[in-house]
């Protein structure tokens, strides 16, 4: 099952990935998402693809996209580092897909367009990423009562045979996934740190092998947690789901808040619900004032399934112009 990476994916890894093989990073800084977007546009306009960077003179390909050819050249010269990193991931059952691959989750491309991460690393059944489901988000530090509440939501999702999508962090994230998985359901964890540690966690092993859990992250498998990453990955959680429930949130700050507001104001991928039994929770009330709906507390699998059906009354997605895949339709 050793997959061979396409030349396009190899090129995108060389350009944008830190390729952490050892604990130390060295050399040129990989291209940022913004820089890569410029390059990708330039390539697309010239009807070229990233793999062409591996053998054609750089100057022609880079053109006017304001990237230093020396820097791009030394990023592309990391061939050995790339192959070492890929081998390290494959040994750990970690896969990587790029936007140029047919296996890249369509939901990300459709909903995020050019902002879809150029690379995704993951472990477990990639097919789950296409199934949709219920996203559950909330804080890391919560009391036992909310943990119980969230686990029940997870269990209900499992009973409704819908995937649970969350961020794999402590607190609400893990409670929701735990609830779903313990009840025999499926779950996707969109991680803010690299997937390597979670992929090797003995508690996840069976679930990953049985195709019930998928872990995914846009960050290098060895990357450590960082707040910026945590914020960025919120939109990926929403993008994988058909509806989202905010269990709790701090007011005006923190990842949960920012992610929810971004959905309500800007991205509008999915209907956003908030928990209502916490009367007087000012953050959730504020989100409702911004357009979040009250969670109707579905009690049966049937009710939850209906809630997750495509909702025509939801506000139209902010960006309807469906980006074609980056380098033409997947080949």
């Amino acid at each position: 099952m050793t997959e061979q990476l396409s030349p396009n994916t190899q090129a995108i890894l060389l350009l944008t990935a830190p390729l952490l093989v050892g604990s130390k990073r060295s050399g040129e800084k990989p291209l940022s998402l913004g820089e890569y977007k410029r390059l990708a546009r330039r390539l697309r306009d010239g009807e070229r693809e990233p793999a062409d960077l591996l053998d054609d003179p750089l100057d022609d390909l880079l053109g006017d996209c304001d990237l230093d050819p020396a820097r791009v050249g030394s990023l592309l010269a990391r061939g050995l580092q790339l192959s070492q990193a890929v081998e390290h991931w494959q040994a750990r059952s970690i896969w990587v897909v790029s936007r140029a691959d047919t296996e890249y989750p369509k939901r990300f491309k459709q909903r995020l367009g050019m902002d879809a991460p150029p690379l995704l690393y993951g472990c477990g059944a990639r097919a789950l990423l296409a199934t949709g489901g219920l996203a559950v988000v909330g804080s890391r530090h919560v009391d036992e009562r909310l943990i119980c509440y969230t686990e029940k939501i997870g269990r209900l999702a499992a009973e409704a045979e819908r995937m649970l999508v969350s961020g794999g962090a402590r607190g609400i994230d893990q409670a929701s996934m735990r609830g779903a998985l313990a009840a025999g359901g499926t779950a996707a964890g969109v991680l803010a740190d690299g997937v390597e540690r979670a992929a090797l966690n003995g508690e996840n092993r069976r679930l990953l092998m049985d195709g019930r859990l998928v872990l995914v992250s846009p960050y290098d498998p060895a990357a450590r947690f960082n707040v910026g990453h945590a914020m960025q990955r919120n939109k990926l959680i929403y993008a994988l789901a058909d509806a989202a429930l905010v269990v709790n949130s701090s007011f005006g700050k923190g990842g949960t808040w920012t992610g929810a507001v971004e959905q309500l104001d800007k991205l509008r991928f999915v209907p956003v619900y908030t928990r209502v039994d916490g009367n007087g929770d000012s953050a959730l009330e504020a989100l409702r004032r911004s357009g979040a709906r009250a969670w109707p507390e579905p009690a049966t699998p049937e009710e939850l399934r209906r809630l997750l059906e495509v909702d025509d009354t939801a506000p139209a997605p902010a960006r309807q112009e469906r980006q074609a895949s980056l380098f033409g339709e997947p080949r």
């Binding site: 093989v21 060295s26 010269a77 050995l80 580092q81």
Partner: peptide
Amino acid sequence: RLTNERFRDRALTAVGGRVALL
């Protein structure tokens, strides 16, 4: 050496990004 952690961490990080011929 390739499976040795210290080598991967240090020497290979120093050179792996630039090796032109394997």
